[in-house]
Design a protein around this nucleic acid. Structure first.
Lengths: 125, 125
DNA sequence: AGCAATAGTATTTTTTTCCATACTTAGTAT
DNA sequence: ATACTAAGTATGGAAAAAAATACTATTGCT
């Protein structure tokens, strides 16, 4: 995970730095919420916030526990959600959107709307 | 590419059918515009529409030609953009957003805005 | 005749993601 | 004592996505 060769650093820099050292905001967004599960998880959490680990696992029928944990930890690391561990037995862990995460809500709404359009379009062809 | 085993079909059906045969629109959207490059390509095309293959390749500095072609063809297949070949030498191929693709523009705008927020947030920590 | 330009295709290799399985922890219920 | 619970971790491996490399076609230009 921490390879960090010179070549790799160079690559990352080149990719993020457009003309005058300006980052492409779309690239930034995709780094945070790209991937197979993240938007699905966030969409689920925002509909019932806070949400427990086990509920997410049930909803995302085909995600494995390992992957679910990994994705949630990345979202936490990136400041999009918070993870609260309650010192109970059996354990309870709740995930919530942060302020930054909540800013994604209208985008998720719009994406869902677009998804419906896309489906209608598909069935027409 | 066309494996289509029974198990695989079952899986896809289960994943898309929530309670009463209703599709999750977010899943649909992600199937169309998920992946490492698609939103980046669409974001570039919408800023200069139509856009030529070679321009895209220059902008997406680290995409390979093979991947670029594959992604564009999928977006075309999914009704998000059109591909126009001009019978000239050297060849010219132009990509344009369809009506469905144009519906993504406000979403891409919002995502870019969010990307900036995300970056600010990151530099604060 | 040889080369450049554009937009590819074909094939193989690498990287990234994701999954399967087994194990853990601590208190509570049987 | 043992089983059960929720939310994990550890390890190994497979599948999917993307990349690397080499090749193609056409026609104008030098």
């Amino acid at each position: 995970m921490e390879k960090n060769t010179i070549a790799e650093h160079q690559h990352v820099n080149d990719q993020n730095n457009l003309e005058e050292n300006e980052k492409n905001p779309m690239t930034a967004a995709l780094q945070a919420i790209g991937g197979k599960w993240k938007l699905l998880l966030l969409d689920s959490i925002r509909r019932e916030c806070p949400k427990r680990f086990g509920e997410l696992r049930k909803e995302m029928k085909y995600i494995t526990q390992t992957t679910l944990t990994a994705q949630l930890r990345e979202l936490e690391r990136d400041g999009i959600l918070t993870r609260a561990v309650f010192p109970e037995v059996p354990p309870r862990v709740e995930y919530k959107l942060t302020a930054l995460g909540k800013q994604l809500i209208p985008i998720m709404d719009a994406l869902c709307e677009w998804g419906k359009l896309y489906d209608e379009n598909k069935s027409k062809s």
